[in-house]
Each structure stands twice: as C-alpha cells, then as structure tokens.
Design a protein around this nucleic acid. Sequence first.
DNA 1: CTGTTAGCGCCTTCAC
DNA 2: GTGAAGGCGCTAACAG
Lengths: 363, 363
Amino acid sequence: MPDRVTIAQVAEEAGVSAMTVSNVLNGKPGASDETRRRVLDVAQRLGYQPNISARNLKAGRSGLIGVLTLDLTTQYGLEIVRGIADELAAAERELLINATYQDGVREMERIEFLSRGLVDGVLMVAPVLDEETVELLRRKNIPCVVIDPRRQDVALPRVIVDNYEGMRRGVQHLLSLGHTRIGYIRGESDMDSSSIRFRGFCDALTLAGVEVDPRLVVDCDFTYAHGFQAASALIGEHRPTAIAAGADLIAFGAVDAARALGLSVPDEFSVLGFDDLPQASQSFPGLTTVRQPLHDMGQTAARALLSILDGQRLLLDRMQLPTELIVRGTTAAPADVDAILDRLLASSRGTSDDAVGASGQDA
Amino acid sequence: MPDRVTIAQVAEEAGVSAMTVSNVLNGKPGASDETRRRVLDVAQRLGYQPNISARNLKAGRSGLIGVLTLDLTTQYGLEIVRGIADELAAAERELLINATYQDGVREMERIEFLSRGLVDGVLMVAPVLDEETVELLRRKNIPCVVIDPRRQDVALPRVIVDNYEGMRRGVQHLLSLGHTRIGYIRGESDMDSSSIRFRGFCDALTLAGVEVDPRLVVDCDFTYAHGFQAASALIGEHRPTAIAAGADLIAFGAVDAARALGLSVPDEFSVLGFDDLPQASQSFPGLTTVRQPLHDMGQTAARALLSILDGQRLLLDRMQLPTELIVRGTTAAPADVDAILDRLLASSRGTSDDAVGASGQDA
DNA sequence: CTGTTAGCGCCTTCAC
DNA sequence: GTGAAGGCGCTAACAG
C-alpha cells in the first residue's frame, strides 16, 4: 500500500472543501482563478493524484477489461492480445490478462471472479465456452466478445477468420508447384477451425482432380513436438512430397522432421503453415504460411467490446476477417522423394538417428 | 457494466440487515442457523457475489499487482511473467500487465498511473529505471521488486542471475571442444548483464591461454534479424569456428546465418546461446545455451514482493540465481571452416544468395 | 463561486 | 444473535 494523499488533505491544506478540489482538478467551471491556482498549487506540492478505485466505485465501473487467453507464452494468443492492448490503450482502459490453459472449468471460474466488479467486460481468445459459461455470461449480462472460439456457432459476438479460403489457397499453391502427394496435419480435432481448414484442403485437391488419401491425413496437437512426431511418421511411412499443417508450430516441427531425416527444405521437401507467427519470418528458410491477421483480430474484438460498453448495440455479431497466403522459403517444386529417401536410408542411418535424439531430448 | 446484485438486495429479500448478510457470507460467527440458512439461500438464488472493488476500497488495497515488462511478445519477459503469475495465483492476486517497450518515460508514466490506487505493488522486468523513476518509487513508497534491471546496482530489491559464471562455463564448453577462434556477439551495450557476460567470455579465453581478438567481438540488439546480420558479417569476414551469443534470439539468427552460408550446424559451425528460451529446445538441432531460470526469477521476485506487502522487511535486497549450461545440438568439435567456406564460395554463389533473400524478405 | 449532503458497496465497531 | 452508524475516497446534485 503506497502512501496516498487524499482529496481531503489537499482540501484542508488549501483551505477549501473537497468538492472544490475535485472540481478544479477535473477542469469543471465555477472556481475563482485565485482558488484554482491555490488548489493546483497544493495538489502539485503534495503530489496528489485521485484514487482510481474510489473514482470507479463511484462511477460504477472499474476501467478494467478482462482478457482470457490460452496462457502467457503461446505466440498465437499473445499476438491477439497485443492487438487488444493497442486498441484499449487509446481508450484508457487496462487489461487483466488471465490464462485458461484451455480448461473450460477454469475459464468459467475466471469469468465468475472477474465479473464481481473487477472488470467492465471480457475478451476471450480461443475459448472453450462450455454451455454453462455462455449461460453465465448471459445471466450476469457481462459484455463479452470472443475471438476464434473453438465452436464457431456460439451465440456471442465473435471475431473469426476465413479458415476455408486460407487453406484452400495455400494448398492450391502447393498444387501449382506440382505437388500431388500432400500430407495433411490437422491440428486439434475438437476445434471447428480445424475441420473448416481441412475442408479447404480437400476441396483444393478435389478441384485439381487429386484424390484425398486418408493415409496422408493425421490429427495433432498445436505444438512443435507433436508436429515433429507426426511429420516424421508421415514422411517415413507414406512419403509425401509436401506437408500442409493446420498451424505454424506444427509446420516448424515438420520442417525440422524433414531435416532430421536428411531432406533439404524446400529443395527436397515443402512445408506449408497456418497462422504466420512472428517466428515464421524469423527462421531460415522463412515459412510459407497462411496469414491470420492476429493483431487485427484483437483490435477488432476490442473495438467491438468498447462499442458495447458505450451502450451501442453491436451491428455485427459475427466479424470474419480475411486470411492471406504468404509465400516464403519452405515451398518449392517437388523432388523425387522416394529416390532421396532410399539413398538416405541406405547410406548413413546412424547420423540421422543421432541428430533426432539431440533435438528431442527435452522437447 | 454487468448486472450486479448488491448486499442490500440480499438483505431485503432475506428480511435481515446487510450486516448479517456480510457476516454470514464471510463465515463470521454470531448468526442463528435459521438466519444463516435463509441468507445463504437468498444469496444463492440471486447469484450474489460481493463487489471486489468496494471491498478493496474499504480494505485500502486493490488486490492487483502491476507488472511492467518489455512487451507482450518477447518470450524472455513472458517466461518471467509466467513465473510471477504462478506465484501470485496462490496468493489470490491479479496481474495488471503493462508493456514499456524499453522506454524510460513510458515506464515512469505507467508507474505513476498504477500507483493511483490501482495496484498494491509493482514488479518490473528488465526495467530502464531512470533516476526519476527510482525517486518516484521511493517518494510514493511503492512496494517494488525489479528483475534483471539494465543497471544492476540500482537501489531497489532486485532479482538477478549469475551472468558471469554462466557465460564463462558456456565458453569453456566451446574451448573444451577445441574451438579457439570464437566469435562473440554481445547484445545491447547499455545493459550491465551484457558487459558481465562479456567478462565471463574474456576470462574463459584468457584462462585457456587464448587471446581475445577484438575483431571477433560485435554488439547487437537482442533480435533474430540483428543476430543473423551480425553473424553473417562475422563469419564472412573473420571466419570463426564458433559463435557465442549474448542471447538465444541472437544465437538463432547466428545458426541460420551459418546455414544460409552453407555451413552445417554443428558439424561445420558451433553456436552457443544464452537464456534457454522455450524455442531453444523446440528447434533442430536443439540450441546449446546457458539457461537463465526465468520462471524461477519471476517466482522469486513475486514472493519477495508479497513478503513486502505482508509488512515483512525484506531480508535480501539482492537475490542472485544460478545459471546452467545446457548442451544440446548446436555445438561440436570445430571443422576446417576456411576450407569449407572457400569451397562454398567457389562453387554455388547463386544458390546461397537466393536462400538468404527468401528468409530476409520480411525479417 | 463555494460548500454541504449523500451515496457508490462493503465491512469494522459497537450498541442493542 | 442482530442491526445501526460510520467511513474507505470520490463526485453528482443541490444549496448557500
């Protein structure tokens, strides 16, 4: 508890009432220049600053916005939070960031807690949103906007992206390079966006007259380690010439899996990501990926929440943002993977095993 | 502003006074079982939850801790914040995270704002700490603990790590592998930790009877792009067999710079990092690096702040945590770099230029 | 122009 | 056992 100067102290010191101090400091009219000067002077000297909590209690608001996100280290969520923070900074509102760890129960508990006068509204990044949670939000009438919810049909104002078009375009890019044996790593299966992206993948292939080979399709958590694993298996068993991943983290794992098997990316193996995390451009070669406008998603959601808080009924309940293919260095025309793999397996088996071990040790 | 049920409403509905409701809900004695039951029943039915802001105003605290960190995307800072969050969760305190963007003025402004009754104390990650800021903290008597401050001699409770030992051990590891031409990329020059790590580097070399070659030492921002650039120049001009970097981000850049020049890591070129960011283990090959206990640093600082808030005078003003060498896959015995580079430069110049371009396009 | 009153929602104190 | 009074720090509304 820092030392605090109260309005009463300033009032006494200046020989006026608290009300006058309040008026002067808030730039209200009705105070002689003489008084005004004296009050400002004393306030300055004492280092008085109004107590924000008290002011908010009075105003029936807290000035805080609750943000529920996956955790404090996932780049995906943080890029969105950055967008939120940038938008909210202008509105003089602070963020209360909470990690949910994708746990529906924890998610609801946090909302329950935050809604006890702590925050004026809530933004949720990739929320689980159990039925009861939605019910809670409605019942307590908590202003809320969700971003990329796991179930996209949830009855709350929401910001989503065009997953279908994004993946379709990305896969078309692979097809146009000449790939036809394309592995697909789906991401988490309980997310609507995973299925939607997969539809984009299938439609792209079908449109190009390529059949979808179910053996080339696997599910996988949104992590580097799982991506590495899934890609290793896929390449080893079914020898695609390229992999399309449901997320950048998976794609990074796939790139390194190919490398660990001795395949050079992109000359001998192509990888397509989805997200465009900062790391996608900060790696070598840069990752070809489908960009989600993460920062913009956060901004859009924050803006929508602010307009709800301003009492404006929201025009759109469903805000869909476009995705964009970003071609960097992990995609190229296919090589004869079979021949290359045969060569690698025949020659140096020991070397590549060692290499995998070194990376995998604490992943 | 969510719909709120107040204690008065519950009191009326239950036919008792607000006081009784408060007592019952806070588990205070002195209420007949009959009354108790009725109050709990009504509170439950109305969904009453005490307003936290009001409670805090009364208690003269906010339950919030301000956290000033670099920004919302730097892994280094976020790992520390994660430690803070984990420690504070147990204490039922919420975090108000603020980005400073390493701007001393903004840093002070945020503290000024937060100290207006918004937070009970402040934790600062890698703060700039201008004189006036320290003065402000003292004057307003704001409980504060800093983590890895840019100037380590600042007169505030602080958590730091053993930078010297860490880098010394890391460089000894390179020396023990047989490297003698070791490039050093220092990190930002206005940070004490940069100079301290550099001393560790120099002493390790000197102790091994290797002279420090000033041409092999460069400064560089803590970013991938700058690391890439600095390492490219260093390798191209002075041909070290290894590089020790002042931060993992720089090291990632160095690894990719070596790759871009056609050098295989670690067989033909070694790289040592400093930090052990999550990405260090989630890459291929895994990065050999000096681990800072980031999560622990956050926890330690949070614990210290809590004890200050509890009114306990802090025992230690300077808490130093150990570092640890983590050997992964980017270090190995040196190869004949001169020969390799000559070979590469002589043969395919076009290819490697293309590759660098692909990565650099938006880095 | 300035001050008094009152109340935001809660809880500590003390009287009944 | 229960409740009335009062106050945390601030400001809207009204009174002087």
